[in-house]
Design a protein around this nucleic acid. Structure first.
Lengths: 239, 239
DNA sequence: TAATACATATCGCGC
DNA sequence: GCGCGATGTGTATTA
């Protein structure tokens, strides 16, 4: 771990530091008054304001204002960053292809440039995901209903892959859609697509049930389930 | 715009700077070797590594590693940040309620603490959104088809609000779902929900057509549209 | 590379 | 505050 910083640098000094940081594979931050333009999947313009620009060695660029979780502008990993002094301003230019996208951050004034040499060997261990919910259901299929027998996961249908595919005590096919959190109408639509696809493909007489497994459901989603003859079972992603 | 920085501070000096920055309503960044724990909607643990912590005056916290667009851990706006020295480590603690969530970032070593006083009066001007596509369609309904007449936007149905609601040259009801980008199966499910809801509510004889308006469609989505008797029209969000 | 679905999604709007 | 849907969504996985 190593870090260096320039305070109130000239545009030329800032440019040199940013270029050196990128070259060295460091994380570079620039704080100053800037304007931002973006063009690609959409296009945007942002007038002057004080923001923090982060450049990562994987080609990520983030422009953060003083509020919000989301950066006001950004470039995803894999971009090429370039830096130059243009008309006395520090100009950072980030581009990529597929899709063609371009981000321009132009600093009229730079207050601080930092370079961070970061090494990080740890991986995030996350619990409470849909994968955890699936594990719970496969470990104890009775959470869905007594007699439920899982037969496959990620089983393919013409409408997409079903989370858990199995049979009930009466031999009916059961399609289970898992959600780690409270579900709305979108999840009902998803389950309905899978059920309809399997009914379409199935031989006559074989009935297909659809079960949404999630911690809870909104009123509207519950109505949509009822209209389509689908079911809901409350299960939390973790015990 | 004003900024200050501490290099290789003691835990106590770092703590004081972070606390002062938060108190002053500034953006605060801390770079150093840290471990992170999160508990709330899910839970996670992250072992030691070099990362950049951003604390914003609106109560946002972001932990960024040297790669990726997304922070490895975070807290959304509205949280309360607290900082302390614990067993010689700089500990930053961020909490919120509804839902109850808690983020702990514990620095074994701090390389840099920066304070940024940011003012930003500009708003992002974004083009190429779904709102732009809607404007296009309302300005020139023939983009959907000759004779199409919009009658309402955001019209409510039991399944949710329809983007554009209108009638065709033959007097049939037309439901238009707009997407700013290439659409997949999820958009077909959404359109199908609206169409089904309106058919259910409508008097006999009145037919309801569903049209997906987007730049393009995936193969699977096209098949699903065909199976459900729904239509697709290619339109870009901007001319 | 494209497609499909998850995500501690976040964000904004309406009720 | 909850519900609902858009997002330049990003991200992983799979074909």
């Amino acid at each position: 771990m190593d870090a260096s910083v320039l305070v109130d640098p000239s545009p030329e000094a800032a440019c040199e530091a940013v270029a050196a940081g990128i070259e060295a594979g460091e994380v570079v931050s620039v704080f100053g008054r800037c304007a931002v333009e973006y063009e690609g999947r959409a296009s945007s313009t942002l007038g002057p304001g004080d923001r923090l620009l982060l450049l990562k060695p994987d080609g990520t660029a983030l422009v953060h204002t003083e509020e919000g979780h989301q950066p006001v502008n950004w470039q995803p990993p894999g971009c090429d960053h370039a830096v130059a002094v243009e008309d006395g301003d520090l100009a950072v230019h980030s581009t990529r292809t597929t899709p063609e996208e371009e981000l321009d951050v132009r600093f009229a004034a730079v207050a601080q440039v930092s370079r961070y040499a970061a090494t990080d060997d740890s991986e995030l261990a996350l619990e409470g995901t849909e994968a955890d919910l699936k594990r719970r259901v496969l470990d104890d299929p009775a959470l869905v209903e007594a007699g439920f027998e899982p037969r496959a996961t990620e089983r393919e249908t013409p409408a997409g892959a079903v989370d858990v595919y199995g049979v009930d005590a009466d031999g009916n096919t059961v399609v289970v859609e898992l959600k780690r959190r409270r579900v709305g109408p979108d999840a009902v639509g998803q389950l309905a697509r899978y059920v309809e696809a399997l009914r379409r493909d199935s031989h006559e007489g074989a009935s297909v049930r659809g079960v949404l497994v999630a911690p809870s459901v909104t009123d509207r989603a519950r109505e949509l389930l009822a209209e389509r003859g689908l079911e809901f079972v409350a299960v939390e992603p973790t015990a």
